[in-house]
Amino acid sequence: MNEVILIVGMVAATFLVRYPVLALLGKVSMPEPVLRALRYVPPAVLTAIIVPEVLMPGGQIKIANNAYLIAAIVAMLISWRTKSLLLTIILGMATLWLWYAIVGI
C-alpha cells in the first residue's frame, strides 16, 4: 500500500467535506425551515455514532451482560442529574472499570 497516497486521499476526503460547506453555505441565506432543522443535527449525529457502539459491541446486538450498556445508562443518569460533562466522563469510565473488576470483561 502506498501510504503517501493513502494520506493524500484521506486529507481530500476529509477537508473537502468540512471546508466547502462551512465556508460557502454562509454566502447564501438559508431558509428558516432549514435553519430550524439544523438545530437537530448535534444530538442526532452524536447519538447515531454511539448507539451501535453501546448496543452492538461485537457487531451483534447485546443486551444482557453488556458492560458498555450498563455504564452508558449510569452516565446518562449522571449527565441528567448533574449536567457536568467532566463528571459524566469520569463516573462513566469508573462504572465500566468497576463492572470489569467485579464481573470481568
Binding site: 437537530y40 448535534p42 444530538p43 442526532a44 449525529v45 452524536l46 447519538t47 447515531a48 455514532i49 454511539i50 448507539v51 451501535p52 457502539e53 453501546v54 448496543l55 452492538m56 446486538i61 458498555y68 455504564a71 452508558a72 452516565a75 446518562m76 449527565s79 441528567w80 449536567k83 457536568s84 460533562l85 467532566l86 459524566t88 466522563i89 462513566g92 469510565m93
Partner: peptide, 29 residues
C-alpha cells in the same frame, strides 16, 4: 461514548429533540 452522552443528555430539553434522538438511535442500529 461517555463524552458524547455528556454532550447529548443536557440538550434533550424538548420533546422534538427527544424524538429526534430516539429515531437517530433506532435507525443507527
Amino acid at each position: 461514548i461517555v463524552t458524547f452522552i455528556g454532550l447529548i443528555v443536557p440538550v434533550v430539553k424538548t420533546r422534538p429533540i427527544l424524538v429526534s434522538v430516539i429515531v437517530a438511535g433506532a435507525v443507527s442500529i
